[in-house]
């Protein structure tokens, strides 16, 4: 395995290109997002790149009122855990005007470009 793949950097570069790049274990087919070098299910070390399509449902969410320094100007903002159609969870901003969305709501990935990075977000569909 090339150590430049399945890294935080490869995930972040994926976001910058408006893709959700994870990994797939070539041994047991487990999907992972973000990508990992070792399969947590079977211990396999051979990964291939896998692109997720970004559709899923909200598994949990919260409107953050006491925010991180970096998110002060978005306050209050909603964050959530989204369960993607492929069966993996991922954290992201929820674009809902600072309001809670119902658990189970359908959402799709959007990519918020900032000066020095891209933040993964989801919008209700």
């Amino acid at each position: 395995m090339k150590m430049t793949e399945h890294t935080v950097k490869s995930f972040m570069e994926g976001l910058a290109n408006e893709t959700l790049k994870g990994s797939k274990c070539t041994n047991c087919s487990k999907l992972m997002l973000p990508p990992r070098p070792i399969c947590p299910s079977c211990g396999g070390k051979e990964m291939e790149s896998h692109e997720f399509n970004g559709e899923g449902t909200v598994k949990a969410c919260s409107v953050i009122h006491i925010a991180l320094t970096r998110f002060q100007d978005m306050r209050p903002h909603c964050v959530g855990i989204v369960w993607l159609k492929e069966g993996v969870g991922v954290s992201g901003l929820i674009l809902s005007d600072g309001k809670e969305v119902e658990v189970g709501s359908k959402v799709e990935a959007v990519f918020l470009k900032e000066e020095d990075r891209t933040v993964l977000a989801f919008k209700p569909v």
């Binding site: 598994k59 998110f71 855990i81």
Partner: peptide, 24 residues
């Protein structure tokens, strides 16, 4: 920090997510 905090999760936010799922 890379995969939760970078998306806007605070520490109380994580337990709030647990509460959200638990209530549901």
């Amino acid at each position: 920090v890379s995969y939760e905090v970078a998306m806007g999760f605070t520490f109380p936010g994580l337990y709030a997510a647990i509460a959200s799922a638990y209530f549901n």
